[in-house]
């Protein structure tokens, strides 16, 4: 009887032990999963951070590059403008932004066009007058020409 009871208790103890171990195991497992997830999350966050940093750097690089190009363009244009000896007034050329430069350039093109048309108009007038002057004198020779 007693033995029977002992056996039964033992079985219960065994069972409890088993359950406890199971629970422990489960707990450990859960703990591990949790840790893994956290680690993963951390990793992801880190990766994100890196990517973000990278993007940021890239953005900055692009901007710098664009700035550089813009600056170089500006400088080139300024150089060009200075080379042509255009009077842009009393401004620091370094201070000009591209819009201002464009305006200067447009006005420059305008000026060139005006110069061109002015010069050609003068040329045209001279050519026309020279031709007419020649003819005016030549007409006097025309009757002679007929006699001959």
């Amino acid at each position: 009887q007693e033995h029977q009871e002992t056996l039964a208790r033992r079985a219960i103890i065994e069972k409890k032990k088993e359950l406890a171990s199971d629970a422990l195991q489960k707990k450990q497992k859960e703990e591990e999963t949790r840790k893994r997830i956290i680690a993963q999350q951390r990793q992801e966050a880190e990766a994100n951070r890196l990517a973000e940093e990278h993007r940021e750097r890239e953005r900055k690089r692009m901007k710098d590059e664009q700035d550089r190009i813009r600056r170089e363009n500006n400088e080139n244009e300024i150089k060009e403008i200075l080379k042509k000896g255009i009077n842009i007034g009393d401004v620091d050329v370094k201070e000009l932004d591209s819009n201002q430069l464009r305006l200067i350039k447009i006005s420059q093109l305008e000026k060139e066009k005006n110069d061109l048309s002015k010069n050609l108009r003068v040329t045209g007038k001279r050519i026309d007058h020279l031709e007419r002057a020649f003819r005016k004198e030549e007409i006097k020779l025309l009757p002679q020409n007929y006699e001959a």
């Binding site: 007419r132 002057a133 005016k136 004198e137």
Partner: peptide, 21 residues
């Protein structure tokens, strides 16, 4: 029909012709 000299003369005096034209 104009001789070289005549042409030259006209060129020289183009201003006067221009005025007329």
């Amino acid at each position: 029909q104009l001789s070289k000299d005549e042409q030259k003369k006209i060129r020289k005096n183009l201003r006067d012709y221009s005025k007329d034209f």
